[in-house]
Amino acid sequence: MINANELLKRYGAGELSFCGENLTGVNLTRADLIGIDLQESDLHSAVFVLAYLNRAKLTKANLMATRLGGINLSQANLVRANLRDADLHGAILQGADLRSADLTLANLLDANLIDADLRNTNLSGANLTGACLRGANLREENRKYSANLRGATLRKADLRGANLTGADLARVDLRGANLSEATLRGADLSGADLTEATLKGTTLTEANLARAVLRGTNLMNAKLERADLTEADLASVNLQGATLADAKLIRVHLAKANLTRARLNRADLSRANLWGASLRDAHLIETYLARANFTNADLTNANLVRAEMSSANLTGAILTGATLPDGRIQP
């Protein structure tokens, strides 16, 4: 076991490799250790607050319960590192390789994870509030190799352009997060809270959004083909120009939602609540609308060709110019 002074002395003398060393509890606050090789070393409970470990090699290192607030780990290699319970508040992990790392319950509040590689990373229960994950890669490689964000907090996180294909985001707190242009194809967002989030142009094809909360969310031009939105709360949501073809919208709450020009062809909207929703110019061809509630909804110029709406509630709905299931145009 070596101590902080010895490590700094040897590093200062040009030594870079400290693989497999026991450095538990070492305090290296603000230390400059750029490019250090600490692969497989034991750094349990060590302190690296505001230290510089840019491009450090930390593969398989044990960083459990470490204090890494404000650390610079840009472009560091943290493949399969153990960062359970680590404090990474305001840390810089830009371009870091965190594949298969364990970040369970880690605190990444306001951390910089721009362009980080987070494939197969375990982030369950982690706090990513305000974190910037722009362009980060959390893509699923195969069913067994996908990022796990179960129970994580991603409130106000910046996930613009991030790749979250197949990621496990079940019950994640994404309130106020920005997921514009992100890819969430086939991602599990069941029960997730996306209140006030921004998902402009986001790809959610085949995503599972069952029971998710999307109140006031901006989903303009989002792609939701074949997505499962069963019982999701989409009150007052903006789905202008969004694609929801073949989506499952059973018992979905879409009161006051803006679905202008949305494409809902063949979607299942049975028992959906569309009270006061705007569906002007929307495409509802072959939709299944059993017991759907369109009270006071605006369906001006909507296309309802071959839609099954025999049991739909259309009290007070505006259908001017709409194409009805039999092809007639409502005067």
Binding site: L50, G90, A91, N112, I114, G130
Partner: peptide, 15 residues
């Protein structure tokens, strides 16, 4: 979001 990115690109968020 834009502001935060531009700051994070050039400064340590903790600092």
């Amino acid at each position: 979001f834009d502001l935060r990115v531009s700051i994070m690109q050039s400064a340590n968020p903790m600092r």
